[in-house]
Nucleic acid binder design. Structure first.
Length: 500
RNA sequence: GGCCCGUUCGUCUAAGGGCUAGGACACCACCCUUUCACGGUGGUGAUACGGGUUCGAAUCCCGUACGGGCUACCA
């Protein structure tokens, strides 16, 4: 099993789902999950991106068995460090007539694309119809080729696609897929800078690293015939890994992109990603307040299900139940509302102790320092049902620890009167003298005073809540009062009374 | 344009020839709740279209339409 990301930016939903499925499949069958860094494009190097990938995997709980960071006996796991191994295979292909040297400059290629551009063929390819009109070892004499090579002329190695062959392979998700090779272009295998392209590297490395199953996104399907042919030429089809091409995760319009997230207001990356070149920060699911368990869960169900109506799965269950046969073949549009539902479910099911460390960090960021550990846990237990995102805990719990900064007076004023004012004055006196401070006592006393004054408790509870909480939300009022204590409760009532 | 992949409620999906096409999210209503949630009950809502094959098609085949991907010395 392998996952082979290119470290050029943040890891988005589709990428993480690919890792997930790779991981689940590997773990299910006792295989190794290996992560190889595909960094053959030096122009796209982004500092910090590789580390970001591993940080993301760690957060998701999808630790590789072999990788740059985890070691393994098939290294190096960074393609840039394997540069020397690829040339040999490219030369072998040329020698055997499956590939050729091409000396065309970027300008010449551009000219070709321009000259052959027709209405019926808007994007001409470097293929069997064109290659004999270009500058390569097929059109040049052996001597010319040799001397160009000897002079160190910049050149690439291209695969020579056969003219009329049908390449067929079995995709684990789609079944048999076939291609007419005359319609595929002569892809570059080895670039002028000596680095391989993805096409060569993926085949060579999958062979050398003894990869048994190779899963990737559907966007790779069109180049599959190139890879199949390379396997046939280099290592034999019988040694080729099993392939699976996952359907794409779609945004509101086409393949999900970073742009979609910014445009429609939902995260696309797993964790915050700060582009070192532009300085742009893209918010991640982690920072948005998602639990890794929920993130994994929602991704797993985006294109897969176990056939039952179960939707919430632990990682262990996913490993146990995952199967390629049940991966959908159609693309799935990402629904942020449903994603939030998954997180809410996970928060509800997590116990307060588990949530505590994260919540504490969030509270500290809002300058709420909680020293009483048991209190924090109790509060979390009381409010977690109403928190969809981890970040919701701040608003839902701040009033337990700090006096509310603002009071929603508009919710009280319209029905406020002398009688109610008097009620609260009496309530303060009563609570002041109350020998104990428990939820039930507080509620009973509250109702007795109301009854004695011929007032309906229901009309008084909302104002009371606003005084303690600041707004119309939160758990039972008397529980809140019980937790914040006598002094604080009275102080808050007095404060609101004074500004009404 | 060419090639490849795909098409069940708005969204994620179940139903691999035989039922009123099931569930979940979202939405609406009601119940519970003297706030907001949680929870509960119910509701709106789908097999893209046209042909076959078959006693019988969401399911198999063909065509059309639509959607997506690819078409770089990027992955």
């Amino acid at each position: 099993m392998r996952f082979a990301p290119s470290p050029t930016g943040g890891l988005h939903l589709g990428g993480v789902r690919t890792v997930l499925y790779n991981y689940l499949f590997a773990k299910k069958y006792g295989g190794d999950f290996i992560v190889r860094i595909e960094d053959t494009d030096q122009t796209r190097f982004v500092s910090g991106a590789e580390e970001y990938i591993f940080d993301t995997l760690k957060w998701c709980g999808l630790e590789p068995d072999e990788s740059v960071q985890h070691g393994g006996s098939f290294g190096p796991y960074r393609q840039s460090e394997r540069k020397e191994t690829y040339r040999k295979y490219a030369e072998q292909l040329v020698k055997e007539g499956f590939a050729y040297y091409a000396f065309d400059t970027p300008e010449e290629l551009e000219k070709m694309r321009h000259d052959y551009k027709m209405e019926h063929n808007p994007s001409p390819q470097y293929d069997h119809t064109i290659r004999m009109k270009m500058r390569n070892s097929l059109t040049l004499s052996a001597e010319e080729t040799q001397s160009l090579l000897a002079e160190g002329t910049r050149h690439v190695v291209r695969i020579k696609m056969p003219e009329h062959e049908t390449v067929t392979f079995t995709d684990m998700i789609r079944g048999e897929v076939s291609f007419d090779t005359s319609l595929v272009d002569d892809k570059v295998l080895l670039k002028a800078d000596g680095m391989p392209t993805y096409h060569l590297a993926v085949v060579v490395d999958d062979y050398l690293m003894q990869i048994s199953h190779a899963f990737r996104g559907e966007e790779w399907l069109p180049s599959a015939p190139v890879h199949i042919l390379l396997w046939k030429y280099l290592f034999g089809l019988e040694n080729m890994p099993y392939w699976a091409h996952f359907p794409l995760i779609l945004g509101p319009s086409g393949k999900l992109s970073k742009r979609d997230g910014a445009k429609y207001g939902f995260p696309v990356f797993a964790m915050n990603w700060a582009d070192p070149n532009t300085g742009d920060l893209t918010e991640g699911f982690k920072e948005k307040g998602f639990l890794p368990e929920a993130f994994i869960n929602l991704l797993a169900l985006l294109g897969w299900n176990d056939g039952s109506e179960q939707e919430v799965f632990y990682k262990g269950e996913l490993i146990e139940k995952f199967s390629m046969e049940r991966v959908h073949s159609a693309g799935a549009k990402f629904d942020y509302e449903k994603a939030k539902w998954f997180n809410h479910e996970w928060i509800k099911r997590s116990d307060a102790g588990y949530l505590k460390p994260e919540v504490r960090i969030l509270l500290e960021k809002s300058n709420i320092i909680v020293t009483d550990d048991r209190l924090l846990e109790k509060v979390i237990g009381l409010i977690k049902d109403r928190c969809t995102l981890l970040t919701d805990f701040v608003q839902q719990s701040s009033f337990f620890f700090n006096t509310p900064g603002s009071i929603d007076l508009d919710a009280i004023k319209p029905k406020w009167n002398e009688a109610r004012q008097m009620f609260f004055v009496e309530l303060i006196r009563n609570y002041q003298l109350s020998p104990d401070w428990h939820t039930h006592t507080l509620e009973n006393n509250f109702k007795e005073i109301a009854a004695a004054n011929d007032l309906k408790p229901g009309d008084l509870m909302l104002p009371f809540r606003i005084m303690l909480v600041g707004g119309k939300f939160g758990p039972g009022v008397f529980e809140i009062a019980a937790i914040i204590g006598k002094d604080e409760t009275i102080k808050r009532i007095e404060h609101t009374l004074s500004i009404l």
